[in-house]
Write a protein that binds this DNA or RNA. Structure first.
Lengths: 194, 194
DNA sequence: ATATTTGACTAACGAACGTTAGTTATTTTA
DNA sequence: TAAAATAACTAACGTTCGTTAGTCAAATAT
């Protein structure tokens, strides 16, 4: 049984992620976080400059994960369909290996203040555009039936971004099961093939 | 121009819905709500017994809307496919005509305390089961390709329940556009028909 | 070995929170 | 018309909040 050593800063962030997810940012106090870690609230400020700083680290850390995970795929010479499937797979993989942080990324970012709020939104937008571009390529190459691209990307993200609620670490469904099924539903629909 | 008369209680709830949606339940104070209404915080207690009472009214009011909207469909003799399409349409219609309240219903319910929290969850579950049942009927009648029912219902709800973010009162997309497209994507997928 | 940095502590600040009590003018009911 | 209910107000309560200041022992660097 290998002991996993993590430093205090990381430990605090993990606790904060979990509390922000389960209770929400506003309802999680610095004292709550400190108690869970086993130190005093004031000691948190030796590691993070403010409560918002904690939120910032979580949100931008996740943004970074999402971007780097799809980077290799963008460079490859896949078809739009293959690319979309792979990107969906990566996206879900990032989510399920960061369940708490993902939930915070999706729901608590709005408590960021400027300038981070604007910066965050623009990052999010940039990421979504990468998916929209691939879907548009799929239309051009006649790989996809023509439907409203905004609604398609929206449907995909809505489904993907809720997977942190569907995936249970010791459940039946693996990350690959989930991403495979969602890709499949979006691309093939529910209609029988005959 | 007909003047719309609403009573104080209703006005307070509308303001609260909007604040809870935009700032979150925890970050919205009774003083915030009161200021927006134009009265003092203490006066809110002439209409609602507590802050949680406000949240409760919003959440359970929406639950009621969702249930009653699909009631007529359940009784009709439609095919599973037709039923699913109609239920999706109703669900989206309820959302877009209650944008703020929907957002609260989907994201802020977790701030309810027992016994309302449990009651809420069980209502939500009961509602989702109605969709799952229809999807299962679709499988039995070979109207739908066999895929994991849990993931299908999850994908549908994720997409539908995010529509409060997609729909803009004066935007291009109508409620029907949105529900029609989402139904279409889920049922037919992106694959070309040829 | 000495100096410095780190990371914990206690104590406390001012602000904001949900809520209650008590009062009063207006509106509705009997 | 008198009585009762309604809905607003001011003032204040106890609590919790994020955060800062100041202290001190242990770990690290010189």
């Amino acid at each position: 049984m290998a002991e996993i050593i993590i430093d205090r800063k990381q430990q605090i962030q993990l606790v904060a992620q979990n509390l922000f997810r389960t209770k929400g940012y506003g309802a999680s106090s610095m004292r709550d976080i400190a108690k869970e870690v086993g130190i005093e609230a004031a000691s948190l400020y030796n590691h993070f400059s403010s409560k918002e700083d904690l939120l910032k680290e979580i949100c931008f850390g996740m943004a970074n994960h999402f971007f780097t995970s799809i980077e290799p795929i963008e460079k490859k010479k896949f078809s739009a369909k293959q690319k979309l499937e792979k990107m969906i797979e990566c996206h879900v993989a990032v989510i399920v290996s960061n369940i708490d942080a993902s939930s915070v990324f999706f729901h608590e970012w709005k408590h960021l203040k400027e300038p981070f709020l604007g910066e965050f939104k623009s990052l999010r937008n940039k990421y979504e555009k990468k998916f929209i571009q691939i879907i548009n390529e799929g239309f051009e190459q006649k790989l996809f039936r023509k439907v409203d691209v905004k609604i398609v990307s929206f449907t995909i993200f809505s489904a993907l971004n809720a997977t942190y609620d569907l995936y249970k670490p010791n459940g039946k469904l693996s990350a690959k099961d989930i991403s495979k099924n969602i890709s499949d539903i979006i691309i093939n629909g529910l209609k029988p093939t005959n």
